[in-house]
Design a protein around this nucleic acid. Structure first.
Length: 730
DNA sequence: CCTTCAGTATTTTAGACAGCATGTC
DNA sequence: CTAAAATACTGAAGG
C-alpha cells in the first residue's frame, strides 16, 4: 500500500514522500485496513522499529486536520524529548507540538494551543488532577509502550489515565502501541480497539543460543570466527570482525562495567590511528563531567571504543554513550536493562548474557519472555545491517535446549493489571474524589469498573473500601451522607502528586513538630522524614554501615520526627537505619561535600545521587506545602531545604544561587572570594569577579545584575539556563 | 613469623516517574 | 517455595 493512496491531507502525504517514505510496511497497511485513519481505535502489537511511530503520526495528523488535538503518552522522559524533537518537524505542516514532563513543561496556556502534546503517563495523570482545561478537547490519545500496564509501579497510572481520558471524551480515539504480548486481544477488547498483531520486521532477526563454539539458531548454526575462553568476548570479537556493533545485556552494574573493561582491553590491541583519535575525543567528552570513580572507569573504557551504561551514570554520560554508539564510534555497549526498552538504539548483534535477575522476593528468577524479546528486538539496524542477531549464552547442552524452548521459541507472557492493590489505588482513589470525577462511592465503583483491572480480573470494591477507610482516617476524604469530598489536605496531596501514605507520614511528623513548639531547626529530622516516605527509595543498608549509622542515630535520637522503632523489632529498626543512612547522604550533599567523596563513601554512582536528590527536592517541597497548610513550624525550613537540596548548597549560598549560571561550585567560589551575595556582587569590580569565574561566565553573571557596563556575550559556551542538578562542575 | 592458597562464609544484587517557576529545549 | 557471583574470612601448608 502506497502513501499516496491514503486518506490523508495532501501536505501530509507530501511530507512523508519527501522524507523518502512511499510505501507502507505490511503491519501498517493492515492497520489502515482496520480503519485507524477513519478514527477507529487501534492496538498495534508489533516489534520495535517496524513503524509503530509512523502509525501514530498519521493518525494524529489526520485527527488534527479535522481540528483535533493529540496527546502522546510515553513511559520515559528521554523518550518524551525524542518524540518531541521528531514531531517538531511537523511545524512545516502547521502542526505545533508541546512537551510536558517533570523536567520541562510548555506553559499551560501554550499547551492549550499546541496540536500535539507529548507527556509521560505520570505527567498526563498530574495534568488531569490539576484540571488542565485543554484535556477535554483531545480527540486522539497515543499510548506508547502500552504493555507497561503490566508494571507494578507505573502500570496503574497508565491504565487509570487512559480510563479517565476516555470518560472525559467517550469518542476519544486511542492508538496503543505495544510490544508483542500474549493477550493483545484482551487489551484491545478493553480499549474497544481494532487489533493488529504481527512479527514482521524491516530487518530479519535471528535468535539463537551460543554454546561451545557456535551460535545455534533455529535452523542453522554459526561457528564463531574468534573463539576464546570468554564467551562474551568471543561473541563480541566475532561481531566486530564483521564490522558490526554489539550490545551486551547484563544483570548487574558491576558485571556491565567488567565486560566493558574486558572488551576495551581486547580492543585496545588493534586500533587504527583514526579510531584512537576518535576515542580520545569521546574520552575528553566523558571527562568534562569528571571527578568520580565511575566517570574515570567509563573514560578508560571509551578510550578503547567500549562503554558501559547503567543508572549509576549521569544523564550526560549516558547521552554521550548513546550518541557515540549511534555514530558508530563506540563499538560495544555493556549495559543493564536501562537500554532494554524505549530509546531507539539498534546494534548488529545483541548478547543477552544473563537471563536471570535478582528479585527481592524470589531470589534470582528468569526474566520474562517479554523482556527478552524487547532486548532481542534491539538487534539489526534497519537499512544498515543485513540482519540482526540476538544471542543467549548457555553453559551446558541442556541449558541450550532450555533457553531455546523458553525464550527463542516462546511466546511473550500475558500482561496483567496491577491496579488491585492498596498502594496502587490509594492515590488514584484520592485523585478521583479530589477532582470531583467521582462524587460518591458507587460513582467510584463505576469508574473503577472501566479500568483494565476490572475488565480483566473483575471486582475492585473490596480494596477500594479499604483505601477509602484509610483516606478517611487520615482526613484526606470526608463523607457527608453519600457524598465523598476531599478535604483541603486531600486536594493538596492529590495535586502534589505524592503517595497519600507519604503524606500521612509527613502529617504525623509535622504534628509532632507542632507539639514541640518553636520553629523547628533540626535539618536532619526533616531529611530523615522524607527519606522515611515510600516515595523515596532508601539506600541499601550494608552490614558494614551498621556501626556508624547506629552511632549517627544515637547522636540525633532526640531530633527525629518519625517514631524510632524499639529495639524489639529488628526489621523495622533496620529499615529506620536505612532512612537515616539516606538522610545522612543528603546532609553531606547540602553541606557541599564533593561528589567524589559522596559516591565513594556510599559506593553509589553519580547518577544515583542525582536521582535521589530529585526525589528529595520533590518531597521536601511537598513537606513545605503540607506544613504551610497545617501551620506547622517547619514551613520556612522545608522551603529552604528544598532549594538547598536542589543545588547542593549550604544556607549561606542561597542568595548567590539565584543567579543563572551559578551552581554549587561557582557560588562557593564567589562566596569564598568575598562576594557573599548579589548585592556585594553588584558593586564588585568586574576584573575581580572574572578572576574567580572566568571572563565569559563573569560577564554573564554581572549582566543579570543590571550591570550595563558589562557586555553580555551570548553563546552556548556553557550550561547556563538549564535547571538540572549537578551541572556546574569544573 | 609471614605469605599463599584453597575452601568456606558472607555480602550484594535493575530501573525511574512526580511539584513549581522560568523560559522555549 | 525459589539464586548466584563476588568478596571477605579462615586455617593450613610452605617459605
Amino acid at each position: 500500500m502506497r502513501i499516496s493512496e491514503l486518506d490523508l491531507p495532501a501536505p501530509v502525504k507530501e511530507f512523508y514522500e519527501r522524507s523518502g517514505i512511499k510505501e507502507l510496511y505490511p503491519p501498517q497497511a493492515e492497520a489502515v485496513k482496520k480503519g485507524f485513519l477513519e478514527g477507529r481505535s487501534l492496538l498495534a502489537a508489533i516489534p520495535t522499529a517496524s513503524g509503530k511511530t509512523l502509525l501514530a503520526e498519521m493518525a494524529m495528523l489526520k485527527s488534527i486536520s479535522h481540528g483535533g488535538k493529540a496527546l502522546y503518552i510515553v513511559p520515559l522522559k528521554a523518550l518524551a524529548s525524542e518524540k518531541f524533537e521528531r514531531f517538531r518537524q511537523f511545524e512545516t505542516l502547521g502542526v505545533r507540538t508541546g512537551i510536558s514532563t517533570g523536567d520541562y513543561d510548555s506553559r499551560d496556556e501554550w499547551l492549550g494551543d499546541r496540536d500535539i502534546i507529548v507527556a509521560t503517563s505520570e505527567k498526563a495523570d498530574s495534568l488531569l488532577r490539576n484540571g488542565a482545561p485543554w484535556l477535554s478537547s483531545l480527540t486522539i490519545v497515543v499510548a506508547d509502550e502500552v504493555h507497561l500496564i503490566d508494571s507494578a509501579n507505573r502500570g496503574p497510572t497508565l491504565e487509570v489515565t487512559l480510563a479517565r481520558l476516555r470518560r472525559l471524551n467517550p469518542s476519544l480515539q486511542i492508538i496503543a502501541l505495544s510490544a508483542t504480548i500474549g493477550n493483545a486481544k484482551e487489551l484491545a477488547g478493553w480499549m474497544g480497539a481494532e487489533l493488529v498483531v504481527s512479527d514482521w520486521r524491516p530487518t530479519t532477526l535471528k535468535e539463537g543460543v551460543f554454546f561451545g563454539r557456535a551460535i545455534n539458531f533455529q535452523d542453522e548454526k554459526r561457528v564463531i570466527s574468534t573463539p576464546g575462553p570468554d564467551e562474551v568476548l568471543a561473541l563480541v570479537s566475532d561481531t566486530l570482525a564483521e564490522g558490526g556493533q554489539c550490545i551486551v545485556f547484563t544483570n548487574t552494574r558491576k558485571s556491565s562495567e567488567g565486560i566493558a573493561q574486558k572488551v576495551a582491553k581486547s580492543l585496545s590491541k588493534k586500533l587504527t590511528e583514526e579510531e584512537k583519535a576518535a576515542f580520545q575525543d569521546i574520552k575528553q567528552q566523558v571527562l568534562r563531567h569528571a571527578e568520580t570513580d565511575t566517570c574515570a572507569r567509563l573514560a578508560a573504557c571509551v578510550e578503547h571504543g567500549a562503554a558501559f551504561h547503567h543508572a549509576g551514570l549521569k544523564n550526560e554520560h549516558r547521552r554521550i554513550v548513546e550518541d557515540e554508539f549511534r555514530r558508530n564510534r563506540i563499538k560495544v555497549i555493556a549495559c543493564t536493562p536501562t537500554l532494554a526498552a524505549g530509546l531507539n538504539l539498534p546494534a548488529r548483534r545483541v548478547i543477552i548474557k544473563d537471563y536471570r535477575r535478582y528479585d527481592v522476593n524470589y531470589g534470582s528468577v528468569p526474566i520474562p519472555v517479554l523482556e527478552y524479546k524487547q532486548m532481542a528486538g534491539r538487534a539489526g539496524r534497519p537499512g544498515l545491517d543485513p540482519y540482526g542477531e540476538a544471542v543467549l549464552i548457555a553453559k551446558t547442552h541442556d541449558e541450550m535446549g532450555e533457553l531455546m524452548d523458553n525464550y527463542v521459541l516462546s511466546e511473550p507472557e500475558h500482561i496483567t493489571s496491577k491496579l488491585g492493590t492498596e498502594p496502587a489505588l490509594r492515590s488514584h482513589v484520592l485523585s478521583a474524589i479530589a477532582t470531583d470525577l467521582c462524587r460518591d462511592e458507587s460513582d467510584l465503583y463505576d469508574f473503577m469498573d472501566t479500568t483494565f483491572y476490572a475488565y480483566q480480573r473483575g471486582d475492585l470494591s473490596a480494596v477500594i473500601k479499604n483505601v477509602l477507610d484509610f483516606l478517611e482516617a487520615e482526613r484526606m476524604v470526608v463523607r457527608s451522607g453519600d457524598r465523598l469530598n476531599a478535604s483541603e489536605l486531600g486536594r493538596l496531596v492529590s495535586r502534589l502528586y505524592v503517595d497519600p501514605l507519604s503524606a500521612s507520614i509527613i502529617v504525623r511528623a509535622l504534628e509532632a513538630a507542632k507539639k514541640r513548639g518553636e520553629p523547628y531547626q533540626k535539618e536532619i529530622a526533616l531529611l530523615q522524614l522524607i527519606c522515611a516516605t515510600p516515595d523515596v527509595r532508601p539506600l541499601y543498608l550494608r552490614r558494614s554501615d551498621y556501626g556508624w549509622v547506629v552511632k549517627y542515630t544515637e547522636d540525633h535520637i532526640d531530633d527525629f520526627l518519625t517514631e524510632v522503632p524499639g529495639a524489639g523489632d529488628e526489621t523495622d529498626f533496620e529499615a529506620f537505619l536505612a532512612t537515616v543512612k539516606t538522610a545522612a547522604l543528603v546532609d553531606m550533599w547540602i553541606n557541599e561535600r564533593n561528589e567524589e567523596e559522596i559516591t565513594s563513601f556510599y559506593s553509589i554512582g553519580p547518577g544515583d545521587v542525582r536521582s535521589l536528590m530529585e526525589s528529595c527536592v520533590w518531597l521536601m517541597h511537598a513537606t513545605a506545602e503540607i506544613s504551610g497548610l497545617l501551620r506547622a513550624p517547619v514551613t520556612t525550613e522545608a522551603r529552604e531545604l528544598a532549594v538547598r537540596i536542589e543545588h547542593g548548597i549550604s544556607r549561606e549560598l542561597m542568595d548567590l544561587i539565584e543567579l543563572e549560571g551559578v551552581g554549587r561550585v561557582r557560588a562557593r567560589k564567589l562566596y569564598d572570594a568575598g562576594f557573599r551575595d548579589r548585592e556585594t556582587l553588584k558593586k564588585a569590580d568586574e576584573a575581580a569577579v572574572a578572576a574567580v569565574l572566568g571572563e565569559k561566565v563573569a560577564a554573564k553573571v554581572l549582566a543579570q545584575l543590571g550591570r550595563k557596563d558589562v557586555a553580555a556575550t551570548t553563546g552556548p559556551d556553557d550550561t547556563i539556563g538549564q535547571s538540572t542538578l549537578l551541572l556546574f562542575h569544573e
